[in-house]
Design a binder for these strands. Structure first.
Lengths: 193, 193
DNA sequence: GCAGATATAGGACAAGTGACCTAGAAAATG
DNA sequence: CATTTTCTAGGTCACTTGTCCTATATCTGC
């Protein structure tokens, strides 16, 4: 892996674990094992590193969504893949929250130019989820609403699990979200509504 | 209002709008209109200001919950008061997220000593919500689960509304949460389940 | 009006920040 | 091998941070 990629990878972790502003060049340099002055050969500024980190996360997310999509499962099962990230990444989420949500929140408070770029991560998940609900037979409006609903629910679970520390809480909420997805198809939603 | 209270009030706003770490003494001094050196007559450190801010928020929250409790409404209506904070504070939430959630998240990433103190704010809302569900006839376990569920949902809505910007989204989710509360009483939950 | 407590201003401090520069090492290219 | 390009280390820069100090102002009780 190139030095540039090493820097982006280290920054990715640190921005997640400590936050963007709280992470210094010295911190990243310490992890990568290079000198501080060397940064500016690869990135012109800290903001440029942030953009590289966001690009990295977008690429990783895209790949992850494609994997879920290619598995040939039903839309409900694919939505299950999304929901179960909460379980798969439970340890880190309990400590640092959702990587997307906390970054967008911090950049928003900092009035940072790259907030809109970070929001693209939300759109990535949101659009993909909406596709699944459309595949379930939902019309455009319902698909969007369901997608945002699950996005919000997972954000909430991540945020609260950082405060609580109750492992059962995540499991319970994941089950509820899976049930929500299963009941979202138009034929079923009439019954549940 | 005393200078000490002025400092705490200004810090309260700034910590919410910009974040704890991103807010400097110079920022607070600018808002209050005093000199930087004057702080240390009222607070020994920045962390002490943070504690004062948390105390302030706890007191305000307690008062708010008491108001809701004293209104003599039904438990479902009281839960509605909680859910509708999202609408009442929509403008600020869209810009800065939930004051409780974003603070707890930031302090968690900073490994800050006062994170547990900030978590008390979550407990305040959580315990109160659990009381309402208990009043609805839910047993201890169900009441706790419902309370955390709504807490998480409201966190998620706040987090997502900072990214989206769609006013309809908040309204839709609030309606769904109100419906959830209305259906939570044991007699009704059997029907909905 | 005086003495003591309280409050305020403004400067100084060391430490850390992002940014920049230059000299030299390493790698690639001819 | 020589030369050009790419990379790296370490120092320096101006600036900001939280913290602390001292001199002055304001208020309070006698």
């Amino acid at each position: 892996m190139s030095t540039r990629e090493n820097i982006a990878a280290a920054a990715d972790d640190l921005f997640y674990e400590r936050g963007f502003e709280a992470t210094s060049f010295a911190d990243i340099a310490g992890v990568v094992g290079i000198s501080r002055g060397n940064f500016y050969h690869h990135f012109k500024s800290k903001d440029e590193i942030l953009d590289a980190v966001i690009d990295r996360r977008i690429a990783k997310t895209r790949k992850m969504l494609e994997t879920w999509q290619a598995k040939g499962q039903t839309p409900v099962e694919r939505i299950g893949c999304f929901v179960r990230i909460l379980i798969r990444n439970r340890a880190k989420i309990t400590l640092y929250g959702c990587p997307v949500g906390t970054l967008v929140s911090e950049l928003g408070k900092l009035n940072h130019v790259s907030q809109s770029r970070a929001n693209a991560l939300f759109s990535l998940f949101g659009d993909w989820l909406a596709d699944q609900f459309r595949a379930l037979g939902c019309d455009e409006g319902a698909a969007l609403q369901h997608a945002r609903h699950l996005l919000a629910r997972s954000q909430g679970v991540a945020a609260l699990s950082q405060a609580l520390r109750d492992d059962d809480f995540i499991d319970t909420e994941v089950e509820l979200m899976l049930a929500y997805a299963a009941a979202a198809a138009p034929a079923n939603s009439a019954k549940g509504d």
